[in-house]
Design a protein around this nucleic acid. Structure first.
Length: 802
RNA sequence: GCAGGUAUGGUGAAAUUGGCAAACACGCCGGAUUUAGGAUCCGGUGUCGAAAGACUUGCAGGUUCAAGUCCUGUUACCUGCACCA
């Protein structure tokens, strides 16, 4: 009687759905457990096995926790706004709404075929009006609180996608969506003031349980540094400007200043600067470079001196030349720096190229060769001379600057404000109106959602205008404040908006009067365990922490940090060991695996293939190994014996395996959990039989991994109605995990010479004398001096003899 | 350049945190059954060696009765950030 997975898997998927066994209950005496996986972007390509691995981790934890008596919320949804859908619509002419609905349907059927225990009554689609209404609501709250604002600055722009991108979306100088080179463009765009939350985001990390490298990456991304702002006076005008430095103590070593090419002071004093032609030419050159080109030319410094425009060093009164160079960026600090070539390699390279003095102020290096960035005694530095401790000399200089009123201590962050608008169609409309009299006016809360209008043509406009700009009926409106004719903002929100708060909506997905009910938020929040990809650590994960913390600050949610625990799964690589991609043709479709081997095999394999956090290549033949595992479980029914208690032969194996599986699932060591069940299976096959009590426990601990086959066997053996609703996770007894006797190794001088069987609870001295009874050992220690004897309980005896 | 990580059989990987390295699985070899196998079952499988035995966790040292695990140095690869002042 072979296991007919096709029929049986379908049967149980239907039964679970009918019985609603995975619906989370809002009122329950059980302890709650909120497990969250990153909801997918429903792309046209459908899911691949990477999705399955990403969801299988917490799927197993959730199923186990239910059997352990938890009230589990394990939801799923769709993050459906985004460029790929819109680009597909442009190419084919099919409306994004239609494409999205089709894709969601496809994803849903794929997910259901794998038997995930999601609560399908709480599904979210970020493109639905009753959802994005609240996305817009949050935006308006931010606007109200001064966190959403417009500013004309240099922005990252993708010429291919024709959109402005945030820093997070253009890491490495490449567009996150199409991987084209990013260019800098001066543009008036919407920002969310995430920098105001930099410290809160840093502090929040201290109270959550994230993988260490996740915390670290976020810390680096926020990039807090401490230093000082110093004011430099200009000699030729009644003017001064500020710089930021982390080493104010090197102020005596300043031999030039550098401003970013776009520094506003240059235009202001164009009349004084004698070589404006040269300056303008350099600026144009810089503007043409892509981010990529800029970072490729790190070694070769370029720049132009501002002739007839110099600064005065505030600590020693020296006149200092000012240059412009693209190695100074407008987006960090003040857009101008003091250059200390002796102790900064970039300044050093620049000084060498332009023949500028290099003055040593910290002893210890050889400044004729390179900049010295280490510690040492201060020299040529007036009142700092002789100091050797970096912290002290920095503090002393900051005190001096503060006292003289020419500077003060300060901090800077690498993180920049979040460029928040996209000149595209398929996103949440930004609910702002431009009134000629009132200026920027928010849409009234009662008028939300501001609906995305129907359009015919999704192509973005030539000068980076949103397709919405062409829809007159949308653009033209009345000012919500004064009622006069006004125009709407036509840009939409970026892809990350909807996903920044979706975990809150799962808690109360159909609420029409609030983003979620406060009582329910109190019951379910925060998310107990969130699993997702490493690629989102400095994007979605930081954005959503920011939104959530804001919502907490305005009293919309009752808890500070959204996620108590965050883990990440490793990629599944193609069979060729390279990242799966359509262009390489090495993508594995979960449907095909389910067709050939069944969902239980797929689920088991993605967790058995290796360390959950590590990347691992797909291996068709290893899938077969898991198929054998499933089939061997089925065949246990042929060796079934009676028995209401564990048999003597299998008792310790049962307890050991239950312990291992119970503990390993919680620490995401799914591979070893499955391995231990395989070991148990080998033991049972050697034993030749399994009794009902043993089978019952085995089905329960395998159920989270392979729910269909275990459910079917549960029913056939009459253990109860339905495992998913009636099953109770088996207990293990620590004491019963140990066998009566144990094989230990006997070492002589650290080398294994024999193995002996002893009682598990044998005393140290008895174990050692037992070891000495062994013929081999006797011969080895014959005539030698025994220096030391060690017994490690249940492990080994080591005799040191000379 | 900065930060973090990884390195163990032919392959994916285990190793109670200092205590028998290679669990579990794949692959391979041999056998049984079979008209047949992407089926099942049994046995073998780190390397060298006929064997006794010796050697073995990227490389070189060190600590220890005992090191994959701790310390020092070094190499390679991976990931993230990157002219961040």
């Amino acid at each position: 009687m072979d296991y007919n997975f096709k029929q049986i898997e379908k049967k149980w998927q239907d039964k679970w759905e009918q019985a609603g066994v995975f619906h989370a209950r809002d009122n329950s005496d059980k302890p709650k457990f909120y497990a969250l996986v990153e909801f997918p972007y429903p792309s046209g390509a459908g899911m691949h096995v990477g999705h399955i691995k990403a969801y299988s981790g917490l799927e197993v934890v959730s199923r186990k926790r239910r059997l352990q008596g938890y009230n589990v919320l394990f939801p799923i949804g769709f993050d459906a706004y985004g460029l790929p859908t819109e680009n597909y619509a442009i190419k084919t002419g099919v409306h994004p709404r239609k494409v999205t609905d089709m894709n969601i349907e496809k994803f849903t059927s794929q997910l259901k075929r794998v038997g995930f225990s999601f609560d399908w009554t709480r599904v979210i689609d970020t493109t639905q009006e009753d959802y994005y209404k609240w996305t817009q609501w949050i935006f308006l709250k931010m606007f109200e609180n001064g966190l959403a604002f417009r500013d004309k600055t240099l922005v990252n722009y993708c010429p291919s996608c024709k959109v402005v991108l945030s820093n997070e979306d253009s890491q490495g100088g490449k567009c996150d969506i199409c991987h084209s080179d990013i260019v800098q463009k001066s543009k008036d765009v919407w920002y969310l003031r995430i920098t105001e939350y930099a410290d809160k985001l840093l502090e929040g990390l201290e109270e959550v349980d994230y993988l260490p490298n996740i915390k670290l990456q976020q810390e680096n991304w926020i990039g807090k540094s401490r230093g000082a702002f110093v004011t430099f006076a200009v000699n030729e005008a009644d003017e001064s400007f500020r710089i930021y430095t982390t080493r104010p103590d090197t102020l005596f070593g300043v031999t030039f200043m550098v401003m970013g090419p776009e520094h506003p002071m240059i235009d202001k004093y164009a009349g004084i600067i004698k070589n404006m032609d040269e300056v303008k030419a350099y600026r144009e050159e810089c503007a043409k470079k892509t981010e990529f080109e800029r970072t490729q030319l790190v070694k070769d410094k370029t720049g132009v001196r501002l002739e007839g425009f110099t600064a005065k060093n505030p600590v020693n009164g020296k006149d200092i030349p000012i240059y412009i160079s693209d190695y100074v960026m407008m987006g960090y600090g003040t857009g101008a720096i003091m250059a200390v070539p002796a102790h900064d390699q970039r300044d050093y390279d620049f000084a060498k190229k332009f023949g500028i003095d290099i003055i040593e102020v910290i002893k210890g290096g050889d400044i004729s060769v390179e900049a010295y960035t280490g510690d040492g005694e201060m020299v040529n530095s007036g009142f700092l001379n002789g100091m050797t401790n970096k912290k002290d000399s920095i503090a002393k200089m900051i005190d001096y600057l503060t006292e003289k009123g020419i500077g003060e201590g300060g901090v800077q962050y690498k993180m920049k404000d979040w460029a928040f608008n996209r000149q595209r169609y398929w996103g949440e409309p930004i609910p702002i109106v431009y009134c000629p009299d009132c200026g920027m006016v928010p849409v009234d809360y009662k008028d939300l959602p501001l609906k995305l209008p129907e359009v015919e043509n999704f192509e973005p406009g030539q000068d980076g205008e949103s397709p919405l700009a062409k829809i007159e009926s949308f653009v033209n409106c009345k000012c919500p404040k004064c009622g006069k004719d006004a125009k709407r903002e036509t840009d939409t929100m970026p892809q990350w908006a909807g996903s920044s708060w979706y975990f809150l909506r799962y808690i109360d997905p159909h609420n029409s009067s609030a983003l979620a009910d406060m009582d329910k938020l109190n019951y379910w929040g925060p998310v107990d365990w969130y699993n997702g990809g490493m690629e989102h650590v400095t994007r979605h994960l930081i954005y959503s922490r920011f939104w959530h913390r804001f919502l907490y600050d305005i009293g919309a949610v009752p808890f500070k940090e959204p996620y108590l625990k965050r883990t990440a799964q490793g990629l599944i690589l193609g069979p060729d060991g390279v990242k799966m991609s359509k262009s390489r043709g090495n993508v594995i479709d979960p449907n095909e695996v389910v067709d050939v081997y069944g969902a239980d095999v797929l689920r088991t394999y993605v967790l058995f293939m290796g360390d959950y956090e590590q990347a691992a290549p797909w291996s068709e033949s290893s899938v077969k190994g898991c198929k054998r595992f499933i089939d061997r479980i089925w065949k246990l029914q042929e060796m079934l014996a009676d028995g209401d208690e564990y048999s003597k032969e299998l008792s310790s194996s049962m307890h050991k395996t239950i312990k291992k599986v119970t503990e390993d699932i919680e620490s995401m060591k799914f591979n070893t959990a499955i391995a231990s069940v395989m070991t148990l299976l080998n033991t049972i096959y050697d034993n030749g039989k399994i009794n009902r009590a043993e089978l019952k426990s085995l089905l329960l601990i395998v159920n989270p991994f392979a729910p269909h086959i275990t459910e079917e066997m549960w029913e056939r053996q009459g253990f109860g109605k339905m495992l998913a609703s009636d099953g109770v996770w088996p207990e293990f007894d620590e004491e019963k995990c140990v066998d009566d006797t144990v094989e230990i190794a006997v070492q002589i001088n650290g080398k294994i010479r024999a193995k002996i069987n002893v009682a598990t609870d044998i005393s140290d001295s008895d174990a050692i004398s037992a070891a000495k009874q062994d013929e081999k050992v006797k011969a080895e220690i014959e005539g030698k001096n025994i220096i030391k004897e060690i017994y490690v309980k249940g492990r080994l005896v080591n005799i040191v003899a000379k």
